[in-house]
Design a protein around this nucleic acid. Structure first.
Length: 781
DNA sequence: GCAGTTTTGCTACCT
DNA sequence: ACAGGTAGCAAAACTGCG
């Protein structure tokens, strides 16, 4: 029952921030509550940090008290028993009144005698609150609240003061969120628009009700466009604002232009402007700003990180093409008077975005809840930070102090084993797979930064090859993390079994499972990342070493029952599909290695090249599987990929190399006749660093330089599309950006000799047809 | 100074 | 701004050659 003067409120946490009002830091929880939007204020929570003691508490405390007087701050000290990398330590929790002073005070006190170091001063105040209370983004809670005495101005239905710590509820389903999407049409004279200078010609929006709106520039300039947009956001009052590339483009263009015009881009729930936070993310207080491009970048299966590809991947049917016009083309169309086409394009994008956002949110809300990163940041956060955030919240629960991030040099270690494939066509091959091998090894051997020891003795797990030792008990921090995740997954599985496919609840739980999988599988990589707080080279190295021994032993077992191993990579072996023998092998693997291996898939035929990690196969299901070959690489021209796929189809299904050559000959004749679209000649490559940092002249770098000269802005991480045109000199001298390749004669000879023929020959060399011979054959008259 | 060879830089893939 | 293992291209550096 609620206390006197209070009432209970149910809310789902959308966003969190903090403000200092009247000298008191307040945590603001933005919630969605049964159709209403609420803001809950917590004024009693205080920021703090820890001092790890090297001296005795009774000696150090008086010194700290004295320092506190000198600093003229009302600080509180509490001696606590904590752990650091599993080792018990005495720590003083120093509570201070102002979140902005935590880091400075920590620095000052860490130099006190008897104090070895300060910790956790780098945890944000609002994050601190969530960690300590268990209040979780994208989760339902119930809280006792009372009327706020001095409520701040905020665009919500109700504002309350928290009267206690919110308690988490079981409900996993998110409430109905109001989502809007937007697309800003800012066009430059040539290339990219110039921030602030070029006007915003139009903004398209859409929303959960699929109601499109469009604000278009009239004679009076673009001020009305931006004003209309601001009013729209305030009237619709969305919980989520989705864009595609919004952090880099739309928000920046809008902000710059609003500033230029002297407009306040007040689109958040406190009447302020969006602000740029960590890693270029745009934050909107009280709402969740989501950039679907972050989502696209996370999905490895996408050929290009475009809205259209992302929509297709998510199974969303969209109206019209979403990516067929680039900035220059849009600008040209607009100027030539076909603004209708441009506006239609923009509106279609906005509509697709809102649908993609709804689909993406199923996963993002679950991930946000699991790893405790607020919704607006979880898509932007790199994998390492997602894992780390999960670990930080676990650390608090188990009394572990959060280690500092430290600058470390690179340290390499040996990873998995890749077996040489048996080249040529193999028939009836099964793939045996150790699922989640690294996490399972970590669990099995209690591999963790806090169980690692340099001591020798009994009750230790000793890693093969590298000899690192890990205590069998107590349970390590990583083991605890993985055990929790696996337990959650198991519970989900049990629930899922009872649910009909296609139901909303099932979708929610499946999304949660995916979130768990992401974190589970990333822990191994995380521990070997030198930027990790819980970095341990020994942990990563030992896990990899145990992994190598698993595969080596599995190969031995397979051979011992007479099963030939034709290939293997890290956690899988490819063997002859002999049911009886496989059954024996799997049983022995389970008994001798203690891990479960599973038959993953069966190839009717699989064709290995001489190279590792490159093969293709015809699955028992009739599908063709392409692995590592040019056909699946984004940095080969489509002509090469299409030619290779064609050859593979013929070779795998019909086993007729002659027919494949004939197909290629026909394909090449069309290429040389110039009847392939220029799009099929484009080679896409990512810019991995700023142009000036490149040490060599490479085609994609030169193409990017040309684009930059012509006014295009290119960011690190963007893909540059270029075409090789006829001309003299090195390849990089013949590369032209796609946007400027029109009207130039492509270098068909290059595409023949360096793209189509090598890609096709990769497959045909198994049939005795090398590159040279193939070239002669396809050119023969 | 040149042609052939080796090394380096770079990117994208696999698990 | 999660790991290492791997392939393969083009550029750059190197090597041998009276």
């Amino acid at each position: 029952m609620p206390k006197a003067g209070t009432r209970e409120i149910r809310f789902w946490l959308l966003d969190v921030n903090y403000e200092t009002r009247g000298g008191v830091p307040e945590v603001w929880l933005w919630g969605v509550s049964d159709g209403k939007r609420v803001l809950l204020l917590e004024r009693r929570f205080k920021p703090y940090f820890y001092l790890v003691l090297s001296g005795k508490p009774e000696n150090v405390l008086p010194v700290l008290e004295k320092e506190s007087l000198k600093a003229k701050r009302a600080l509180e000290f509490e001696v606590l028993d904590k752990k650091l990398f599993g080792k018990p330590v005495k720590a003083v929790k120093v509570t201070c009144p102002d979140p902005e002073e935590v880091e400075r005070l920590a620095g000052r006190f860490s130099k006190t005698e008897g104090v070895s170091r300060a910790l956790e001063e780098d945890i944000r105040f609002s994050t601190r609150y969530m960690i300590d209370t268990g209040v979780t983004p994208c989760a339902w809670h119930v809280a006792d609240v009372r009327e706020a005495e001095d409520p701040p101005e905020a665009c919500v239905d109700e504002i309350y003061c928290l009267a206690g710590v919110p308690r988490r509820l079981e409900e996993a389903r998110a409430p109905r969120l109001k989502i809007m999407s937007f697309h800003v049409l800012s066009l430059g004279k040539s290339g990219s628009p110039q921030l602030g200078k070029d006007p915003v010609y139009a903004i398209s929006v859409n929303n959960s009700e699929r109601k499109p709106s469009q604000f278009v520039m009239k004679e009076g300039g673009d001020e009305s466009v931006i004003r209309s947009f601001i009013s729209y956001v305030r009237d619709y009052d969305p919980d989520v604002i989705a864009g595609f590339g919004a952090n880099q483009n739309d928000w920046r263009a809008l902000s710059a232009r609003a500033q230029h015009l002297g407009l306040k881009l007040a689109v958040d729930r406190v009447g302020s402007e969006p602000h740029t936070s960590l890693y270029g993310h745009t934050s909107i207080t009280g709402r969740a700003g989501i950039d679907l491009l972050d989502m696209a970048k996370d999905i490895q299966d996408l050929d290009v990180e475009s809205l259209e590809e992302l929509a297709r991947y998510l199974g969303i049917k969209t109206k019209g093409r979403l990516d067929d016009l680039d900035e220059t083309e849009l600008a040209e169309l607009w100027r030539s008077g076909d603004s209708q086409r441009v506006l239609r394009f923009s509106a279609q994008r906005a509509e697709a975005m809102v649908e993609v956002a709804e689909s993406a949110l199923e996963f993002l809300t679950q991930l946000s809840d699991l790893v405790k990163i607020p919704l607006d940041h979880v898509a932007t956060a790199a994998v390492g930070f997602r894992v780390e955030s999960y670990l930080v919240s676990l650390a608090h629960r188990v009394g572990e102090l959060v280690p500092k991030r430290v600058d470390r040099g690179y340290a390499t270690y040996a990873g998995g084993i890749v077996l040489s494939p048996k080249p040529g066509m193999q028939r009836n091959v099964a793939v045996l797979d150790f699922r989640s091998m690294y996490p399972n090894l970590m669990l099995m051997h209690n591999i963790s930064p806090d169980t690692y020891t340099e001591e020798t003795g009994k009750d230790l797990n000793v890693a093969p090859e590298v000899g690192h030792r890990f205590k069998r008990s107590p349970e390590g921090f990583y083991k605890r993390a993985l055990a929790d995740l696996l337990k959650a997954r198991k519970e989900l599985n049990e629930k899922l079994e009872r649910l009909q496919p296609g139901t909303t609840e099932r979708k929610v739980l499946e999304a949660r499972q995916r979130a768990i999988k992401v974190v589970t599988n990333a822990l191994y990589g995380y521990c070997g990342w030198t930027g990790a707080r819980w970095y341990s080279k020994e942990v990563a190295e030992a896990t990899a070493a145990w992994g190598r021994s698993v595969i080596t032993r599995a190969v031995k077992i397979a051979k011992s029952v007479g099963l030939e191993v034709v290939y293997g990579d890290t956690d899988s072996i490819f063997v002859r599909n002999d049911r009886a023998k496989i059954k024996r092998v799997l049983k022995e693997i389970g008994e001798e290695i203690g891990l479960e291996a599973r038959p993953e898939k069966v190839y009717e035929k699989v064709l290995f090249t001489e190279a590792k990690k490159k093969y293709c196969g015809l699955l028992a299901t009739g599908e063709i599987d392409l692995v590592g070959l040019e056909a699946v690489r984004g940095d080969w021209a489509r002509v090469a990929k299409t030619a290779q796929k064609g050859v593979i189809e013929i070779v795998l299904r019909e086993e007729d190399a002659g027919k494949a050559v004939a197909f290629l000959k026909e394909y090449v004749s069309r290429l040389l006749a110039g009847s392939v679209p220029v799009g099929d000649l484009v080679i896409w490559k990512t810019l991995t660093k700023p142009l000036e940092d490149y040490e060599v002249k490479a085609p994609h770098v030169e193409a990017a330089r040309i684009m930059k000269e012509k006014g295009w802005s290119l960011a690190v991480g963007e893909k540059v599309g270029y075409v090789i045109v006829k001309g003299e000199g090195k390849l990089y001298q013949k590369a032209r950006p796609l946007a400027f390749a029109k009207g130039l004669e492509p270098d068909y000879d290059y595409y023949l000799r360096n793209q189509v023929v090598p890609a096709a020959a990769r497959v045909l060399e198994n049939f005795g047809i090398g590159e040279k011979a193939l070239l002669e054959k396809v050119l023969a008259t």
